[in-house]
Design a protein around this nucleic acid. Structure first.
Length: 576
RNA sequence: AGCGGCGUAGGCCAGCCUGGUAGGCCGCAGGGCUCAUAACCCUGAGGUCCCUGGUUCAAGUCCAGGCGCCGCUACCA
């Protein structure tokens, strides 16, 4: 691993669409994964070299429709949603955003308009005929037109696809079309749209993807197959009123298609962060030089990040850095089923922290991160991960190590007598020296679950080492050797704390408190390879984690019911 | 329908790209230890690696076909 210490690292999570409160699947897919990486990167490359941003994606039809239904303005809806979600991320889930902003931010809107005007060589205008509801005074997206399927006669088919026979449809072929919002019959009206000609970038995107060695294979595969089907021009504008006004001449009343602008939020959020810091040029270090960039997204988002976004950056004519790693997750299922708001399947991010500790959730979610395939969140698994991995393997190792230093050396970390080292000692020292690099390598490929597996392995080796060495015996026979054991295990304890900080920051700090080592945020990743200096006095051992009772799973339904009825009162009114 | 993913011990999953005596954790059985959160460590039992055919000296790993499960399919973000 050769990395320059001054390298700039840009980290982003996909922007949550704040129509509703996100659920755990949304959280692990982007927000939490990105946070783990950002926290890791700060220790590894230095806080000042890392920036981590995201924001609420609040424009677009679904929110507009939701607002219409609730008889409020879209802005009123997203104001509430944004504040609620932001507070949950920052203060409850400890997501360490440097800037969590929103697409209604002035900096964003200004940047988007300027950026899109800069694409002019790749933009053209075309006229189309689209369904329009005169009652709701808006053009209707395909799926918001309902009617009878001309193939199977299903009466509740959507304009894009029939849910019964599965055929692809389009609004104009539906029999008795009606508006999905008010039920009125839509008319078909001519409208002009501005298109971004993606097809011009087909070859350049393909080359870039094929050359990029760090990009995960699954992302490449999906993106390349998309490209091989041929890239088509994509509409930049829509006839919605809720969004950023399109800046083109003659485009009055039209807004920018949300996907284009949401992606640009990555840049505008960086700009906004540095503007607020009074360093308006600072953002360039993260975008114009060869900064590395890591994006954490769900699998449905791959084409947008691996094809459309790079094409936009290329089309701008400026030397923006293209994504280094796009880490996409498959879907998290809840006990085998898809998360579903309407069917109440799953757990939402304001409910979860009331069920158990946030660090437990963070650890469990990363351990269950759907890196290779859809993965079920099973309470049985969650219990195993918390009780066996977090408590027994890690927590108990930390506790027994510190206890022994408390007891056998008056809480002082002993020096290492190298002349006394044997093979068993050397084996664990080697593991301690190698694990941080192995974890780094996995993390930097976006493989967070695999990285934590390495951390766990070190904890298990630590436990095996203690059993093999039995310092409680050794201390009576060969004090120097016993002291070596303590010196080494204390090193391993700190090593675990440093590596786990990214996943369970609060608990890691608690370990650091017991070690009297100050703030773990200011720690260096590479200290995970080093022993604690001899003579350092540690605090008193006390269990960092607590087990969940065996019957916890059985209690969950009742617990959730209670949590939900409380939230019915405390959630912002528009999100209930 | 098209595209993509997946199918490995009772459970969850790694290995498949770069073929060569089948791994990890949990659970289970037996043993050890007592510093520790009834923890930890060791040993063991348990698998036709979805099916069929092919390539190969050799296939969980490559190829073809089939079965099953899942996801995506672009103004739906």
């Amino acid at each position: 691993m050769s990395h320059f210490p001054t390298m700039k690292v840009f980290v982003a999570s996909a922007w949550p669409y704040v129509e509703t409160v996100p659920h755990l699947g949304n959280l692990i897919g982007s927000v939490l994964s990105a946070d783990v990486f950002a926290r890791y990167a700060r220790l590894k490359y230095g806080k000042e070299n890392v920036i981590f941003v995201s924001g609420s994606d609040e424009h677009g039809t679904p929110i507009e429709i939701e607002a219409v239904k609730r008889k409020v303005s879209p802005k009123a809806l997203t104001d509430q949603a944004h504040e609620y979600v932001k507070d949950l991320f920052l203060n409850v889930w400890k997501i360490s955003y440097d800037n969590y902003t929103r697409t209604e931010s002035e900096t964003h809107k200004k940047f988007v308009r300027e950026f899109i005007l800069g694409l002019k060589d790749y933009v053209f205008v075309q006229e189309e005929t689209l369904p329009y509801c005169e009652n709701d005074k808006m053009f209707l997206p395909d799926r918001f037109v309902k009617g009878t399927c001309p193939y199977c006669g299903f009466e509740d088919a959507r304009g894009d696809q029939c849910d019964r026979c599965g055929r692809l449809l389009s609004p104009e072929i539906l029999i008795n079309p009606r508006c999905a919002i008010c039920g009125a019959k839509p008319v078909f009206k001519k409208t002009k749209h501005w298109f971004f000609d993606l097809s011009k970038f087909q070859d350049r995107i393909r080359e870039w993807l094929e050359r990029n060695k760090e990009m995960p294979e699954n992302v490449k595969a999906v993106a390349l197959s998309w490209i091989s089907e041929g890239l088509k021009p994509r509409s930049l504008t829509r006839d919605n009123s809720w969004g950023i006004p399109a800046p083109f001449e003659g485009a009055e009343g039209k807004t920018i298609y949300v996907w284009f602008e949401a992606l640009l939020g990555y840049i505008s959020a960086t700009i906004e962060y540095f503007e607020k810091k009074g360093n308006p040029k600072g953002w360039e270090d993260f975008w114009l030089d060869d900064a590395k960039s890591y994006y954490f997204i769900g699998k449905d988002n791959i084409p947008f990040h691996a094809v459309i976004f790079p094409a936009m950056l290329m089309a701008s004519g400026k030397s923006y850095s293209l994504p280094t790693v796009i880490s996409s997750t498959e879907y998290l299922l809840y006990e085998g089923q898809k998360f579903s708001k309407s069917r109440r399947i799953g757990i939402w991010i304001d409910e979860a922290p009331k069920v158990m500790d946030v660090d437990y959730w963070r650890f469990v979610l990363i351990r269950l991160r759907p890196e290779e395939r859809d993965t079920s969140f099973l309470w049985k698994e969650a219990l195993r991960i918390i009780n066996s991995e977090l408590n027994d393997d890690i927590g108990n190792f930390v506790n027994r190590s510190i206890t022994m230093v408390n007891r056998y050396n008056e809480s002082k970390v002993p020096p290492l007598d190298e002349s006394k080292l044997d093979e068993v000692d050397l084996k664990l020292l080697k593991a301690m020296n190698e694990t941080p690099d192995a974890v780094s390598e996995y993390f930097e490929k976006g493989k967070l679950k695999a990285g934590t597996e390495e951390i766990l392995r070190l904890a298990r080796e630590g436990n095996a080492y203690l059993n093999a060495k039995a310092p409680w015996d050794l201390v009576k026979k060969d004090k120097a050797m016993a002291m070596n054991v303590l010196a080494i295990t204390m090193g391993v304890v700190r090593s675990l704390a440093i590596m786990l900080y990214a996943v369970i920051p609060t608990s890691s700090q608690r370990i650091y408190d017991q070690l009297s080592l100050g703030s773990i945020e200011d720690e260096k990743w590479d200290n995970a390879k080093k022993l604690i200096p001899a003579g350092h006095v540690v605090g008193k051992a006390s269990p960092v984690f607590r087990k969940l009772p065996e019957d916890f799973e059985a209690q969950v339904p009742k617990l959730l019911e209670k949590v939900r009825s409380e939230l019915e009162k405390t959630r912002p009114p528009l999100l209930r």
